[in-house]
Design a binder for these strands. Structure first.
Length: 489
RNA sequence: CGGGGAGUGGCGCAGGCCGGUAGCGCAUUCGCUUUGGGAGCGAAGGGUCGCAGGUUCAAAUCCUGUCUCCCCGACCA
């Protein structure tokens, strides 16, 4: 058991904070609800970005950048949208300060004619541009993504999971037909699912949100939902079919092949640094963070062990060629030849940081022509021959990636149940986990369940095997398919 | 915004009820010994106790006000 990390079962919140801190991912900032992302955390985010970005490019998208500030009037153009975001906006009202008695205060003379909103999301400012970009069907589709920061004035925050300012990507597309826009929405949902499962090794359920959980301004909100180790669900990404809502609000029309002027169809989709929170809670243990090899900034750490300078030179000479061999195979490897800390300290530190594989090399190994491999996910240690070690390590990283996904999927499936009556549901939901149950499709029933159990409908799953019909567990009315319930972050 | 907890060297905390020279652990610096699971010993440096008032000969401690952070709720496309 790591000294500095709280037991996961004892205090999950503290455990989570300890992981973030010990892995040096992020700190609290002086400003309430914001965070400082440290190099370890940012390197992880950059790897996630790179993988997502190439998936976006592969599906025909381009990156662009739109302004941080949005005129207040823009936000009010789409009724649902302003309703959804009005209560959590940072508003810029003045443009300068003035010195007063050695301090500074806002200069009342500098009040802005129209206040600026720090973007909580960029639909409005982007659709204002799209109006100018689109005249003909030949201008469509527009497939744009932006990497940006956004601000939402949250009451209660948590590092990575919900911060006032966060980093994300937001895709905003415009299409000539409804069919094409819906296809885009589902395509990007699948991109997110693939990323979550193949890179983060985090299994997700895809589905569509109920009306009450829908994005403000969307016709349909699709999502990926993951289950954390404490049994709570995390909405890990969303893809919205926006219909013609924003086109109408911003008067974006195109002339079609038939000569008719028509409103364009829209989508938007996003994932954020919240994914890092999800990654932490999916794989980590009481020794610290566990990173999947595909995303780990450092995949392999080599720790040399020696008693004196002579041994040090010998061990480093033995380990050195391995670094090049691993790099040749595309493995991100580092050696920690720092003489100031002992091996035991390094072992614990790199475990806390989640590095997938550790290689220990000491005089013993040099003598026997071996290496010691220690897996972060299982904490297993194995002696392997130095010959062919690079290939072995490269293969082992793939195994670890796969095993992490399988282990997470097993944990999720063990906490997933099918329930048919409300009394059982009330008992089951106390244990956390995913519950598939029937619901009559009404807001009333949904909010009754939320009030009485704190569980929400995470989504109406897209999986074929959940679409059996039945009767609502609360009202007994007919239900077309099971929906996914959980307590959520 | 409601309930709870906390602000004391870089970090984590004790002291507070009962006022009397500011303490511990980690970290830092130097020395020696160590190095296959978070090293040991010795020495050194570093704090106007969140802020502002008040009581007192004397306040980290008591009183009043105020700010901030964390946790649990409410809120959260």
């Amino acid at each position: 058991m790591a000294k500095h990390i709280t037991n996961r079962d004892q205090d999950y919140s503290q455990w989570y904070l300890d992981i973030v801190k010990e892995a040096k991912l992020a700190d609290h900032s002086p400003v309430r609800g914001c965070m400082v992302i440290r190099p370890n955390g940012f390197a992880l985010w950059e790897n996630m970005k790179a993988a997502l970005d190439s998936m976006f490019k592969d599906t025909g998208h381009e990156n662009a950048y739109f302004p941080l500030f949005i005129p207040k009037s823009f936000l009010s153009k789409e009724a649902q949208h302003v309703e959804g975001f009005a209560k959590e906006c940072a508003v810029v009202t003045h443009s300068r300060l003035k010195s007063v008695d050695g301090g500074v205060e806002v200069d009342p003379e500098s009040r802005l004619d129209e206040e600026l909103i720090v973007r909580p999301t960029s639909e409005t400012i982007i659709w204002d541009s799209y109006r100018n970009w689109i005249q003909s069907y030949r201008d469509l589709p527009i497939l744009i993504n932006q990497w940006a920061n956004v601000v939402r004035w949250e009451m209660r925050t948590r590092l990575f999971l919900r911060t006032m300012e966060f980093l994300w990507q937001e895709g905003h597309t415009a299409h000539a037909s409804e069919k094409e826009a819906v296809e885009e929405t589902l395509q990007m949902l699948n991109v997110y699912k693939t990323f979550a499962e193949e890179y983060m090794a985090m299994p997700v359920i895809t589905g569509v949100k109920t009306a009450s959980e829908r994005f403000a301004g969307a016709v349909d909100t699709y999502c990926i939902e993951a289950l954390m180790q404490d049994g709570k669900a995390l909405q890990a990404g969303t893809s919205h079919f926006l219909g013609q809502n924003f086109a109408k609000a911003f008067d974006v029309k195109f002339q079609d092949k038939d000569g008719e002027h028509k409103f364009v169809w829209a989508t938007s989709w996003g994932v954020s640094t919240r994914l890092i929170g999800g990654l932490i809670m999916t794989h980590s243990d009481d020794h610290g963070l566990v990173l999947p090899p595909k995303l780990a900034p450092t995949q392999v750490i080599i720790v040399p062990i020696y008693r004196n300078d002579e041994q040090r030179a010998e061990v480093l000479g033995y380990a050195d060629p391995l670094i090049d061999e691993l790099k040749q195979l595309g493995v991100r490897v580092k050696i920690d030849a720092d003489d100031n800390t002992k091996p035991g300290f390094k072992f614990a530190q790199y475990e806390a940081e989640g590095i997938p594989l550790r290689i220990g090399v000491g005089p013993r190994d040099v003598k026997n022509g071996n290496l010691e491999l220690a897996r972060r996910d299982t904490l297993e240690k194995n002696i392997v021959p130095r010959d062919g070690a690079a290939e072995h390590v490269s293969g082992l990283l793939k195994t670890i990636q796969n095993d992490l996904f399988e282990a997470a999927k097993k944990r999720r499936d063990e906490r997933t149940t099918f329930v048919n009556d409300y009394e059982t549901f009330k008992k089951e939901i106390e244990n956390g986990g995913f519950i598939y149950a029937h619901w009559d499709g009404t807001d009333e029933t949904e909010s009754k369940i939320k009030e009485e159990t704190k569980a929400t409908i995470r989504c109406i799953p897209l999986d074929d095997d959940k679409t059996e019909s039945g009767e609502c567990m609360v009202t007994g009315k007919p239900s077309e398919s099971r929906v996914l319930f959980a307590k959520a972050y």
